[in-house]
């Protein structure tokens, strides 16, 4: 049973630099051969300031930016081994390109108990090196009993 008193809890901010090689690595894993993700010169020729991010790059920011994520969620009582990924939603607020340095803050924004499962939603809000809001990532987890 999810402890509703945890709704609203935030975790310590983390900082993550957007590395070109991580963009390349993600594009390679997805199988996206668009040269803007693989080559700075190609990105600039297409009009980008630096290598842009594939739409699902935020998952890299969440996992590699905050390697304590599972530990932090486990400490709120969530059974991590029972977690399924239910939904993922991005709000792209301003462009992010390689070499930006982002700060993320994860919070628990919703949680409810249903027969045989809990539904927990966390949100990570990112700002860049100019303190501009650039990205919100919302993840809904289904925690089976």
């Amino acid at each position: 049973m999810f402890d509703k008193s945890k709704i609203g809890q935030s975790f310590p901010p983390f900082t993550v630099r957007v590395e070109r090689c991580k963009v390349y690595e993600l594009a390679l894993a997805i199988g996206d051969t668009n040269p803007i993700y693989h080559d700075l010169a190609a990105a600039q020729a297409a009009g980008y300031a630096d290598v842009p991010l594939p739409p699902t790059f935020p998952t890299v920011l969440n996992f590699w930016g905050n390697t304590l994520m599972w530990q932090q969620l486990a400490e709120t009582g969530i059974q991590i081994a029972q977690v399924l990924h239910g939904e993922e939603a991005y709000e792209y607020l301003a462009p992010i390109v390689a070499n930006d340095v982002l700060t993320g803050v994860m919070s628990i924004v919703d949680g409810k108990s249903r027969p045989s499962m809990d539904i927990v939603t966390v949100e990570t809000r990112y700002t860049n090196q100019r303190n501009e809001s650039v990205l919100n990532v919302k993840t809904m987890f289904i925690v089976r009993e």
Partner: peptide, 13 residues
């Protein structure tokens, strides 16, 4: 559209 025009993108698994 290219990556930058995207404002919102969400899915259910």
């Amino acid at each position: 559209t290219g990556p930058l025009p995207l404002q919102k993108f969400g899915v259910r698994f």
